[in-house]
Design a protein around this nucleic acid. Structure first.
Lengths: 179, 179, 179, 179
DNA sequence: AATGAATGAGGGTTCATTCAT
DNA sequence: GATGAATGAACCCTCATTCAT
């Protein structure tokens, strides 16, 4: 429901109906709508973290793993309600703490991930760790806002391939400079 | 107010208070809250279009103009409420039409803009027009979601410089390959 | 407008628009919406009174004049907004006074009218004046509520003829007892 | 409240106050003011139908039953808000259907009722079924608009008696023509 | 532990009315 | 004398939340 209408417009009544319980039950379990949202966001954050962990730890080649992170189809299908996380995170200290903790963990892991890429020649060694991570996040957020592009993958296959090239080589970089 | 709390949470009462008028006056002028939002979105779209036009038509070097578009500080300071435009655009046929028209116009202009860049050697000629435009938009949207980065530019100057490099040369591209 | 939507739903704004003036002008002339309604009701009452006067004073045969009063087509076409007169009359002493005055006048005239009918054998002499007048008014009000019957007169001609017979002879009275 | 001020002026707030609940409760039960009105109208229609059924099926003499229908004191005391039924019926298809169904049922029953009256010599056999039913309805509606007449029955007893005579024998019909 | 019923606070909207110009 | 612009009071309605059962 949060995905469909946003968490602000999802009424406790509707949520309860979908869950097959009464609104009161939600309050017995979560204390308030805010509490429910907090729990959902928590699980969302933990799931996402775990998923990226698994990708980075996986056996696939580096570029493939990188692509899985940048073009995160699952996350796209989730129609990620940025409003949700942002609204909650900005007002709830508990979530903020968790977010900071996970972000720290993720950064650390990402650093070793890109260290690997650097070693393999896939990442320019002049780039600072911070810049690379930020760039990745910018790409991910921007792509999420273009979720429609990936609705019909076969139709946009060529476009997606070019975008992959773009984030690797930029607007200007030479393509033949493969490692 | 739309920037601060989002247009959904901005009550007509609060809007009127800020404007120094009574809520009824808002209705006399805009008919409904939706009407007000529609007008705001319209002006926003027209202003943005005009601004980018001016940048592209300007006298600065190509790369500088490109940077002005990618790191659009004004737009960032506007704390662009994506929710707003999206919500309105998706439900209002009049806005949809305007959006489509402006998008068509913008695309056409952008194409000649990048043609210029290509001639000057700033854009890889193998990239399709569509890919370039999409990439730009992804970057812009992603950067907007990172508006905080540009709150204290002097502090993040180095980071911003690196990001500029990233969108031009990608993660991998050689930096010495200047035209 | 009062006829179309009722005077309660007719807004001063709409009334002014139809009149081609601004709402303020209405207030300059009538002081308030109530004042406007009062004036309209006054004119309505005076017009109606005058019209019935003219009918009763006319040259037609008695029964024909009676029929004109009972099946008052003009009044029907006016889609008489009973709500209006009643609401105003019940709250405005000035209108009440006028109504009482006109009613007194009308009653007096009606009495002589039915005296005429009685002399001609068209009205049972046993009936009290009050009963006859009330009966007439009941019929008129009831017929007004059945305005649709007279929308297509040719279609309901036979029905109307029978109703005429009914108010003259009742459910039971013998038809052959013509004078 | 609908009787007193009409359903349009009866605010949900006032209705709730009279019911000893909060306005929100009204919405939980009826969905909207329109929903409440719809339910009231439905019950009103069903009650009225049932009542007339009971009268027609009763053991009293024909004339007495007829009088009960024409001078329906309960209905009068209800100060029947014609605006209500009409407004709702004209806009709500569900009510329209119910109204049509009940009207059909009622007409059928009324026809046999008057057949009975005809057999007993109380109704002129020359009158068409439609005319009789319409006449009855005209009388009822007209009398409802004269509800005040029956506020103090003892005071107007003589008048009511004469009116009874009038709808049976008309203005002209001979009184001695009892069956 | 679950719920049905109830509610207070607040949101969007309408409209008779005023007043400086 | 006419008006455009503004408004306060009120109306219908929603929703997060509570509480006795």
């Amino acid at each position: 429901l949060f995905k469909t209408v946003g968490f602000r417009r999802a009424t406790v009544h509707d949520i309860a109906e979908r869950a097959g319980v009464s609104p009161a039950t939600i309050y017995n379990h979560f204390g308030s709508k805010e509490g429910l949202v907090r729990d959902v966001v928590k699980r969302l954050m933990l799931d996402t973290t775990e998923k990226y962990w698994a990708i980075m730890d996986g056996d696939r080649p580096f570029l493939e793993r990188l692509e899985l992170i940048v073009f995160d189809k699952e996350e796209l299908s989730r129609q990620y309600d940025g409003e949700l996380v942002q609204a909650v995170a900005s007002s709830d200290p508990e979530i903020q703490q968790l977010a900071e903790y996970l972000y720290g963990q993720a950064t650390e892991r990402m650093v070793t991930f890109f260290e690997e890429g650097r070693t393999l020649g896939y990442v320019n060694p002049e780039l600072s760790r911070e810049a690379v991570l930020t760039y990745l996040d910018i790409l991910r957020k921007g792509i999420l806002a273009h979720a429609d592009l990936f609705a019909e993958p076969e139709k946009n296959a060529q476009l997606v391939r070019e975008l992959s090239s773009l984030y690797l080589y930029g607007l200007l970089g030479k393509r033949d400079a493969s490692p």
